[in-house]
Design a binder for these strands. Structure first.
Length: 557
RNA sequence: UGGCCUAUGGUGUAACUGGCAACACGUCUGAUUUUGGUUCAGAAGAGUCUAGGUUCGAGCCCUAGUAGGCCAACCA
């Protein structure tokens, strides 16, 4: 242990370690506190792994708590999706709570503050308040209602609760400091009137606590030791602490970290909602969406998300992570787990002229070279096969640059034979329609006695056994690297080629039995997942991510 | 004109609390390869925003500046 290189901890882990060492806490309690007003995205995955991961690492607990204090925007649909997303990511919460569970307690806290002369009912309209609140550089003035008596405040607040007033007519404010340079300390709203049905409490309440008056106390009630949130809540921390101090309740501690920004990606619930509602994508779970539901459907794995988040780390400065890191994490995981199959995206027929018409041979293919336990499968080989159009050139460059097929060039058909191209047909547009080749019987895979060496190996699909499928080729949803930098509408930056539907692809026969959720690698092409839209007579595959492609990179030069 | 936060290769993070700036992604070489994948070997790339200060010694501490972010919702 002593000699082991000390694992570097992020600043939050260091803090926890100190808190545990000093005896400040015997154990830690964290929580993941989403508002059920949208679907979780990759940014939330960072927070989820942070909170649940910390609890795991330090033997603590982590709750799932819904911050449902604004019934206008929230819905059970979101609660359900959030719960299933968190589970999919691999976590189980200790307690499942809702801020709305605490409404009675929160109300009592408010009454307590009023009694202590630290909160008051304000009659000012939003507009009137805007005029006196000042600006960050100009101190605000006090509301004329600030000095109401405790009795009057108590009565008014009770009347607010009883529905005597309309929306916006009155609010409950904390009495703090109208000249504070921190706007959040200038008598912030604690309760507002909303005659709106809540997805959990129904019509029990017509007043709802604000974020600031719910979050900290909820943490405190659950004895959350470390309340982690993103940087923009930093300015709320003095208020978070003020409320806890006034109430003299368990002192949860808020710590902020930088949210995740990803290049070519937008992580804002509001903007994602806009994409969904404007039908720019097919829904929250569109495989191009950075939502957990979307990346799951796209074919990303929970493990790859975990590894990605680990690579990104946690710190207090905000920046933008390259999506390449995510893509690498996905390839890394899929490379280990996924079975290789042959899928030809742009098929062209190839006839082996010296192969007998009706002869078929059964070949053995390795399912996963990275995992011997994945075994092998049989593949049928015959006179007519499909190869990819991209693997043939009528007039290819030197064999040193072009490993694939062309007139008089030799390649190996993987698991089968070495063939030599003897000719091709083309249509009036110069499009190749059929390739002709001869095979060398001495070169059968595994029992090659020819001593031939070829540089190129091609995938192929037997015409007779080919399976058709719809392949959805997904690419980045946006064409702009840093979407935080733009000052026009983010929708102007959508990538028009983010989805290409391919219906001409042919797949090897073994894929006929593919099931929804199956993930495979089409050799030399990429990773694919069988989509939910698949039916008994039509398979639909989503391209999760292409393989790394040094060849294409060379071409670019 | 205010307050708070941040500043380390192209990007994201480290540097055991003051001791030769490390890792990952990306980039580039080369080797292996029946996937132009994987794997393996290697390289380039920052002297830590700037200027002072403390110190034998500063990326770490102090001061000032600069740059960026956040804050003026009855959103979270």
């Amino acid at each position: 242990m002593e000699n082991e290189k000390r694992e570097s901890l992020n600043f939050i882990e260091q803090m926890i370690e100190n808190d545990l060492k000093s005896g400040k806490h015997q154990a830690i309690q964290t929580r993941f506190p989403p508002e059920p007003n949208g679907y979780l995205h990759i940014g939330h995955a960072k927070s989820i792994h942070l909170n649940f991961g910390l609890a795991e690492k330090f033997n603590g607990k982590c709750n799932l708590r819904f911050d449902d204090t604004n019934p206008e925007k929230e819905d059970v649909e979101y609660v359900d999706s959030i719960k299933s997303n968190v589970k999919w990511l691999g976590f189980d919460w200790d307690g499942e709570f809702y801020a709305s569970d605490y409404f009675p307690q929160l109300y009592a806290f408010a009454v307590q503050l009023i009694k202590d002369g630290k909160a008051y009912v304000d009659d000012l309209s939003k507009e009137e308040w805007n005029e006196i609140k000042g600006t960050p550089t100009v101190p605000g003035k006090e509301s004329p209602f600030r000095s109401r008596s405790v009795e009057e405040n108590l009565q008014l607040f009770a009347e607010m609760k009883d529905g005597k007033y309309q929306n916006g007519e009155k609010v409950l404010r904390a009495k703090i400091d109208m000249s504070s340079p921190n706007m959040h300390m200038r008598d912030p709203v604690l309760y507002r009137i909303k005659h709106v049905e809540h997805h959990r409490t129904g019509n029990d309440w017509c007043i709802y606590p604000s974020y600031d008056f719910a979050h900290g106390q909820s943490d405190s009630i659950e004895h959350v030791t470390h309340s982690l949130c993103t940087l923009e809540f930093e300015v709320h921390r003095p208020l978070y602490e003020w409320i806890i101090e006034q109430l003299e309740i368990f002192p949860s501690k808020q710590t902020e970290f930088a949210r995740l920004n990803l290049s070519y990606t937008i992580v804002s619930k509001r903007k994602l909602l806009e994409l969904v509602e404007g039908n720019y994508v097919a829904g929250w779970d569109d495989p191009r969406m950075p939502t957990i539901s979307g990346i799951k459907r796209r074919g990303f794995t929970p493990e790859s998300i975990k590894n990605f988040v680990k690579k990104v780390g946690v710190a207090r400065r905000d920046g933008i992570t390259d999506v390449a890191v995510l893509e690498h994490a996905v390839r890394e995981d899929l490379n280990k787990k996924t079975n290789r199959v042959f899928g030809i995206l742009d098929p062209v027929k190839l006839v082996i002229t010296n192969w007998p018409e009706d002869k078929e041979e059964t070949l053995t293919a390795v399912n996963n070279p990275e995992d011997e336990s994945a075994g092998t499968r049989d593949m049928m080989f015959g006179r007519e096969i499909y190869v990819d159009r991209a693997d043939f050139m009528k007039d290819p460059p030197s064999p040193r640059k072009w490993f694939r097929l062309g007139p008089d060039r030799e390649v190996r058909l993987k698991y089968a034979y070495i063939i030599k191209c003897t000719g091709f047909d083309e249509d009036e547009n110069g499009e190749v329609t059929t390739i002709y080749a001869e095979y060398d019987p001495e070169t059968r895979s595994g029992q090659d006695t020819s001593g031939k060496k070829v540089k190129g190996t091609l995938g192929w699909v037997s015409v007779k056994h080919a399976v058709n499928a719809e392949i959805r080729l997904y690419d980045r949803l946006f064409k702009t690297e840093n979407l935080n930098d733009i000052d026009d509408d983010f929708k102007n930056h959508l990538n028009p080629d983010s989805l290409e539907v391919n219906t001409k692809a042919v797949l090897e026969g073994s894929l006929a039995s593919a099931k929804i959720g199956d993930t495979v690698q089409f050799e030399r092409v990429g990773y694919f997942r069988v989509d939910e839209d698949s039916t008994d007579d039509k398979l639909v595959f989503n391209r999760t991510i292409t393989l790394r492609d040094n060849w294409e990179k060379q071409q670019g030069k």
